[in-house]
Each structure stands twice: as structure tokens, then as C-alpha cells.
């Protein structure tokens, strides 16, 4: 009997709460082209001039005036709250319009949303980060976090695969990481070309080559679904326990907060139950066709 009145009291308060569908306005403080189809924006809140706090793996809903709104993972340093960094690929209406934006332009932001990478789990363990294509962007905050807490973990390995040498994201940063003694960086491309002397082959082939203690490893994977499935299988084959694998998922999202329904994958909402999931929770949802 009591449900109705309780609900009334509760939602009378809720009705006062700010609208979670209403963005805050941000200005582009810096615009960088990364590769031919990827770019990075650094954003400042119009009111505060600052960025936002977030945890590695979270995303924002980014709104372009009159064009639309899409989820984009945050790819900056979680310790740096001066700007919000987003790297994305120009593939859809919104991202293509975004690519023509410049420093000083305004866009809307809601977030941060979603379940982050469980970075604290890596304490005292080897960390293997497996990224494919633009999937490096949501994992870069993990790298920043790990480098800032480097003494808390053992080996730190980045395995990165992408289509071709010109598609390599954050190239200069990768080169500076590769030069460090406390981080092993392996890059492989699907299509080599003249002048490329690095690895050619699917990113999964790097797993057998990289030095890490599989039984004591936590791995974070992000990239196309096929790539994550194949790499998860390889990591398990090498001896990484399946519950130490984490994947970040992508689905259509219209709201980012569990209202629109679009991002459902079986029982989960990618937006609020993810986008980061323990691999055992995803495994059975990744195998049926068109789920």
C-alpha cells in the first residue's frame, strides 16, 4: 500500500534535480589532427575554464549545435583536470562535423558516464594493455594512470595494432613511451608499407612475443569486437586468468544514462553497466550473431 505515497515524496525531490540530458558548454582550447581520419580536442568549461574529473574508461556525450550528440571516451590524463581530452575518428555525421571545428568553437558535454577500467586491480601485478585502432584512445588514461603509479605494478606492456603505419595514433607519444625502460611498447600493423620496419601481422600475434608473467597479469582490451575476442582468447591461451581480462564495448547510444535503450547487449546496458566489463561477463554475449 505504501508504495505510491513513497514514490511521490521521493520523486517530488527528484523533479528538482538538474536535467541529466542538458549539456554544459565547453570551448575547444586546442584542436589537433592525429592521423588522416582521427583528431583530438582539448576542452574547457565555458564557465569555469577547467576540465572535469573522470576515471579512465569513462565517456562523455558530446553535443554539436544542430548536428547531434554521440558518446566519446575520454582519452586524457585523469590527473589533469585543466582540460577534457577527446580523441575520435571522423566516421559519422557528428564526428565529421567535429573535424571541421577549430580552437574557440563551442560544443556541449554531458558526463562523465560509465564504469571505468578497474585500474587498482593491477597493484602488484603485470599490466598488459591491448589496443586496436582508435581503441587506444580509451586506454590512454590507463597508461597515464599506470605511469603515474608505476611503482605499484610490475611489468607494464602496451600491445597496439592498427591498420597501417599511417594509422598509428599518438605516434610521438608511443615513441617516447617506447624509449622508457619501465614500459614495453609493441606495435603491429595489418598492412605494412615501404619504410615500415616494424611488425606486420594481426595485433594478437604480439601476445606471444611480449614479456609478461601471464599468471599474474591483468589485461585491458579495447578495439574492434573481433580484435578483442581474438586477443582475449590468445591471452587466456598464454595463461592469463579470464577474470583478469577487461574489455570496453561500443554500441549505439542516444542518452548515455539508461533511458534510450539503444545500447543494450543482452541483459546489459553498455552505457550504465559498462562500457568496461570483465571479459567473462561479455564472453557469452559476444558469440551469438547480431545479439
Amino acid at each position: 500500500m505504501a508504495n505510491a505515497p513513497d514514490l511521490m515524496a521521493e520523486s517530488a525531490v527528484l523533479a528538482e534535480a538538474p536535467d541529466p540530458m542538458r549539456p554544459r558548454l565547453f570551448r575547444i582550447a586546442k584542436f589537433t589532427h592525429n592521423t588522416h581520419d582521427t583528431f583530438t580536442v582539448a576542452l574547457e568549461d565555458l564557465e569555469t575554464g577547467a576540465g572535469i574529473g573522470f576515471r579512465p574508461g569513462q565517456f562523455n556525450m558530446v553535443y554539436l549545435y544542430g548536428v547531434g550528440e554521440i558518446p566519446i571516451s575520454i582519452s586524457g590524463d585523469p590527473q589533469d583536470r585543466s582540460v577534457v581530452i577527446h580523441t575520435t575518428r571522423a566516421v559519422g555525421t557528428v564526428t565529421k562535423a567535429m573535424r571541421s571545428m577549430r580552437k574557440g568553437d563551442t560544443l556541449g558535454l554531458r558526463g562523465p558516464y560509465g564504469v571505468p577500467w578497474p585500474v587498482d586491480r593491477a597493484r602488484g601485478r603485470d599490466v598488459v594493455i591491448v589496443a586496436g585502432g582508435i581503441g587506444l584512445a580509451p586506454l590512454r588514461p590507463v597508461l597515464y594512470h599506470c605511469l603515474a603509479h608505476r611503482n605499484e605494478m610490475n611489468k607494464l606492456v602496451l600491445l597496439y595494432g592498427t591498420r597501417s603505419p599511417v594509422d598509428i595514433l599518438y605516434r610521438e607519444e608511443l615513441e617516447s613511451w617506447r624509449a622508457r625502460f619501465d614500459l614495453d611498447v609493441y606495435v603491429s600493423v595489418d598492412r605494412g608499407m615501404e619504410g615500415w620496419h616494424g611488425n606486420v601481422g594481426f595485433v594478437s600475434t604480439l601476445i606471444a612475443k611480449a614479456p609478461f608473467d601471464a599468471g599474474n597479469t591483468t589485461a585491458y582490451l579495447c578495439g574492434p569486437e573481433v580484435m578483442m575476442r581474438v586477443c582475449a582468447t590468445e591471452l587466456i591461451k598464454r595463461g592469463v586468468p579470464d577474470h583478469e581480462l577487461f574489455v570496453s564495448m561500443e554500441r549505439n547510444m542516444k542518452c548515455g544514462i539508461g533511458f534510450c535503450g539503444h545500447c543494450q547487449l543482452g541483459p546489459v546496458f553498455i552505457c550504465k553497466d559498462g562500457p568496461v566489463f570483465p571479459y567473462p561477463r561479455m564472453r557469452n554475449l559476444l558469440s551469438p550473431w547480431e545479439l
Binding site: S11, D19, F259
Partner: peptide, 20 residues
Amino acid sequence: LDAVFLQGPFQEPGYARRRS
């Protein structure tokens, strides 16, 4: 619908207002 719009991590304010 209450469970969807009022009992998740976020509340849908329009629904909350009309429903309450």
C-alpha cells in the same frame, strides 16, 4: 517505467515530475 526512469543511476526529470 518507474524502475527505468526513476530508479536507475539517473532520474528522468520530466517523467519524475509528471509521475509524482
